[in-house]
Simulated scan of single mutants.
Amino acid sequence: MTAYWISTYQEITDEAKVKAYSKIARPALLAAGGTFVAAAEPAQVYEAGEQTRVVLIQFDSVEAAVAAHDSDGYQEALAALDGGAVRDMRVVPGL
């Protein structure tokens, strides 16, 4: 079953660290089988929505998304992020 990795940036505290993270994270997640569906600030928000960056990545399964997160390449990206952002990150199974 398809799964979606959803990251919402609640606060960016160091833009340089976020850029360094992104340069490492994107290739690591692509190599792990992820397909980037969206990565931007919302065009429109409703209800309790916040105007913060959202990243949506599709994987073949929850297990694939978790393995991508736990991979050495992505862990290197997290080390580069080093507190540069406060994020809400989830893996959600598709329908």
Rank of each mutant, 00 (worst) to 15 (best):
R90I: 04
H69D: 11
V55H: 01
H69L: 07
Q75T: 00
R53A: 07
D14K: 05
Q44W: 10
L56K: 04
V54S: 04
I6N: 05
V92H: 00
F59K: 01
K17Y: 02
Y46F: 08
Y46N: 03
P93N: 02
K23L: 07
A31G: 10
Q58M: 04
L29W: 06
G73N: 07
V54M: 07
S22C: 00
I12M: 11
L30M: 11
A80W: 06
A85L: 11
A32Y: 09
P93Y: 02
R53E: 07
A38V: 13
L95I: 14
Q10F: 04
A68V: 02
D72N: 10
T52I: 12
A79H: 06
V18G: 05
V92P: 00
E76R: 15
E47P: 00
I24K: 13
S71V: 11
D82S: 04
A64S: 11
A48W: 09
D70M: 09
R26L: 10
Q51M: 14
S61I: 04
R87T: 15
V66F: 08
G83S: 09
Y46H: 10
V86P: 00
D88W: 00
S71T: 09
I6T: 08
V18F: 07
M1A: 08
K17M: 01
S71K: 06
E50N: 12
A39H: 15
T2H: 08
I24Y: 05
R87C: 10
T13F: 10
A31I: 04
V66D: 06
Q10L: 15
T35Y: 01
Q10S: 09
P42D: 03
L29N: 04
A32L: 08
F36P: 03
A67I: 00
Q10C: 05
M1V: 10
A85Q: 09
G73Q: 12
M89H: 01
H69R: 10
E63S: 09
A39L: 12
Y74G: 02
Q51I: 01
D60P: 00
G34Y: 06
G83I: 08
L56F: 14
A31T: 03
R90V: 11
I12Y: 05
L56R: 05
T2K: 13
E11D: 15
P93D: 01
M89L: 07
P93W: 02
L30Y: 08
L81W: 08
V45I: 15
Q44G: 01
V37Q: 14
V86N: 07
T52S: 13
R90H: 11
Y46L: 08
V62M: 05
Y4A: 04
V54F: 04
Y9L: 07
I12N: 03
L29P: 01
E76K: 15
L29A: 03
I6E: 03
A16E: 13
L81T: 05
V66R: 15
A31D: 12
L29D: 02
S7K: 00
A43L: 15
Y4C: 03
E11V: 09
V91E: 00
A68C: 03
A25I: 12
A20F: 13
D72A: 15
T8Q: 15
F59W: 06
A43F: 15
E15T: 14
V66W: 11
V45Q: 09
D14H: 03
Y74A: 03
L56W: 13
V66E: 12
V45E: 04
G84S: 07
G84V: 08
A77M: 11
G84M: 06
A67M: 01
H69F: 14
A40K: 11
